[in-house]
Nucleic acid binder design. Structure first.
Length: 710
DNA sequence: TACAATCAGA
């Protein structure tokens, strides 16, 4: 045998031998590594990978047996984090044995999907089953669920229960407890809890503050801030941001400046978020110029800062300035987003610039923001306030998503346009859509009823539906009812209502009543009411003007003169009337006694011409009678100076025949102009829309949509 | 565990 074959034979033998030796099994993937993997999958929402691990565990028979509670809990955690609550629950239910972490993971799952009730149910069954005792993690989850579902009574019971088991000493438990009380219990209970604590750290103050901020209890928030400031604590930037938010909401400039200076002292004013918050705060406190200064000193530029400063101008009612900022924005560097569009559209709405609104609408479509609720709402608002309720309706029905604001905007839009029926229909459709009405919804419908004289419906909404939806009527609602009753001529009821309503009336309510006296020609009551209102609110020019109008309508010229001299004596100035009209992207503004406009002579001539045409139709220029002390010729001249007539005349001159005119006026339209414009709409065959300070008038063919009932 | 920005109204 050759040497070679000997080796071959040996090799062969070994080979056989090797085949007899059992192959070593691949070692199982170490369990702790699997759990780590599951954790990674959970935290990154890798559902597919997590599922494969789950499958692997089932196949290799490493799962679902009693042994590994820890591992199954990781699976629950995986499904919970991937928002697969039902599957998590299946795994949970199959566990023969659970520990407190399993319970807690499942509870968190429900919490994250918004099923707070399930959280509490699970907690109770955990306690009853006696399987495990709650720990501090469970306690925080429970308190948080009570907070977000408003279950304060149950929360109090749990508080007692955790107190007994000694869990309240944990920092996080305390924080969530305080948060719960501040968010859900209006009567300063959180502050009492704070006072009972032996020692408060920053986080517990912070929790109380954010709860109060969130539920809008700013007074209590300020109280917390006061206590916090007394302690010797180092604030972090979350604290500062909360404080800034508090100031914004309280509109407390004094506090605002203190916080700002503290931020400067401790160097917290350099980050872009902080700057944004400061700008916003000054804007909300009515100090645009401060806001502008902070903005100018902020070197970082982004869309939020730009939008915030725009909003500051919007809050200041400087709508033109807000729009200027928009057009000055370098849209390449800082492209506008939904907030920017919303503020711009709202500015346009306040100015009634229909043409600009259309333009911006186009921009919205191009930039792909059309499906944002915020933008949709702003579009509806813009069209409604710019006079085109039809376009508002279109924008509304084109919305993919709607919220309560969308519905309210539409309802209030209908109301402003005197479309009571449509407003109530929108309300019904809103109920069908499952939206819950709030106080503003009811202001909208009550106002709608008031505009068209639906007394019964109005009272039904006020007395029945508001209760049903648990909306507490406030001054604004009560004032709507005063308007509703008195404008319908039911002065006795209005009087009784005002006498018995459990509310402190303000000048607006009295003006509403007074206005109704004027419209309904109840001059006797009107004078009485005006006397009282002037006594009570000696600086409110509105009541003087109304009284003067009443005197004029009842042709008591000396009364008119008296009011005028009283106003002079007290230095009360009436708001000058301003009207404007948009023509080819240009806005033309007219003042009551306008003489600035370059084409003013032509405008006067146009007015003369138009008035001479409508006089044969029954127009007589002394309806308002305000200018009783001048001769006929002069009187017509004076009336023709009214800003809305100037605007309409200019519109007639500058726009093609048949095109509609949209005019906006800052104060209530006067009687004389109202009747003149009715006739102008007839002879010119124009559709004329006038927005005055409280509603829209649509003039067409000699009629006005308000039916002379405004 | 995240908090710099719209909004409807007598």
């Amino acid at each position: 045998m050759s040497a070679l074959s000997v080796i071959e034979q040996r090799l062969l033998k070994w080979d056989k031998l090797a085949s007899l030796v059992p192959k070593p099994k691949k070692p199982p993937f170490p369990i702790d590594r699997l759990n780590e993997l599951l954790k990674v999958c959970a935290n990154s929402s890798y559902l597919r990978t997590g599922e494969s691990i789950h499958a692997h565990l089932i196949v290799t028979n490493q799962s679902s047996t009693a042994k590994d509670v820890y591992q199954t809990t990781s699976l629950i955690n995986l499904y919970v984090k991937c928002r697969e609550t039902v599957r998590a629950r299946k795994v949970f239910d199959l566990m023969p044995e659970r520990n407190v972490v399993s319970w807690c993971a499942m509870m968190k799952g429900y919490q994250n999907s918004g099923f707070d009730f399930e959280v509490l149910k699970l907690f109770k069954s955990m306690v009853f089953s006696g399987e495990s005792r709650p720990n501090e993690f469970v306690a925080t989850v429970v308190f948080k669920s009570c907070s977000s579902s408003g279950r304060i009574e149950e929360g109090k019971q749990f508080h007692g229960c955790f107190l007994k088991s000694g869990l309240m000493s944990h920092e996080f438990v305390r924080n969530t407890l305080v948060y719960m009380y501040s968010l859900c219990s209006g009567n300063g209970e959180a502050i009492r809890v704070l006072d009972d604590l032996p020692y408060c750290d920053l986080s517990v103050f912070s929790s109380a503050l954010s709860g109060y901020l969130e539920c809008g209890a700013f007074k209590e928030g300020a109280e917390v801030l006061r206590r916090m400031a007394k302690e010797d604590l180092v604030w972090d930037n979350i604290t500062y941001l909360s404080c800034l938010r508090l100031c914004s909401n309280l509109r407390d400039l004094n506090l605002a400046r203190q916080i700002h200076s503290r931020m400067v002292r401790f160097g917290f004013n350099s980050e872009v978020e902080a700057c944004g918050a400061i700008i916003n705060m000054y804007g909300k406190c009515g100090k645009v110029l401060y806001a502008q200064r902070v903005f100018d000193n902020t070197h970082a530029q982004n869309i939020v800062l730009n939008t915030t400063i725009m909003d500051a101008y919007f809050q200041d009612k400087s709508f033109e300035e807000a729009l200027n900022l928009f057009s000055k924005m370098d849209t390449k560097e800082v492209p506008p987003n939904e907030y920017t569009f919303a503020i711009s559209l709202n500015s346009i709405a306040e100015l009634s610039l229909l043409k600009h609104g259309d333009l911006l609408h186009g921009l919205v479509l191009k930039s792909g923001y059309r499906n944002h609720v915020m933008v949709g709402n702003a579009l509806v608002n813009m069209y409604a306030k710019s006079g085109s309720i039809e376009d508002a309706r279109k924008a509304f029905s084109g919305m993919t998503f709607r919220d309560i604001v969308s519905w309210n905007t539409m309802i209030c839009g209908f109301s402003h346009h005197g479309l009571g029926r449509e407003a109530l229909e929108a309300f019904d459709r809103m109920m069908i859509a499952g939206e819950i009405p709030n106080r503003i919804t009811f202001i909208g419908v009550l106002q709608a009823c008031s505009h068209v004289g639906f007394v019964e419906q109005g009272l039904y909404y006020f007395n029945q539906l508001m209760k049903k939806f648990d909306v507490q009527p406030d001054l604004q609602h009560y004032t709507c009812i005063v308007g509703l009753l008195s404008k319908a001529g039911m002065f006795k009821d209005a009087e009784d209502f005002m006498r018995t309503a459990p509310i402190e009336w303000d000048v607006v309510a009295w003006r509403a009543l007074l206005n109704a006296c004027y419209v309904r020609r109840n001059f006797r009551l009107g004078k009485k009411v005006a006397e009282y209102a002037i006594y009570k609110y000696p600086n409110d020019s509105g009541v003087y003007v109304l009284l003067s109008n009443i005197h004029a309508k009842s042709r008591e010229w000396e009364g008119v003169a008296e009011v005028r001299s009283l106003m002079n004596k007290r230095g009360v100035k009436k708001e000058p009337g301003v009207s404007w009209i948009g023509i080819r992207n240009q806005t033309h503004v007219f003042l009551a006694e306008e003489n600035q406009h370059p084409e003013i002579t032509l405008i006067y001539a146009k007015i003369k011409e138009v008035l001479s045409k409508i006089r044969p139709l029954g127009y007589s220029p002394d309806v308002a009678g305000v200018f009783h002390d001048v001769d006929e010729e002069q009187r017509e001249d004076n009336l023709s100076y009214h800003s809305e007539k100037l605007a309409v005349a200019y519109g007639l001159m500058k726009t093609p025949e048949n095109s509609p005119l949209y005019v906006t006026k800052n104060v209530r339209i006067c009687d004389d102009c109202h009747s003149a414009i009715k006739l102008i709409s007839k002879i010119s065959k124009r559709y004329i829309v006038i927005r005055d300070s409280n509603r829209f008038h649509h003039f067409r063919d000699g009629q006005c949509s308000c039916c002379d009932y405004w």
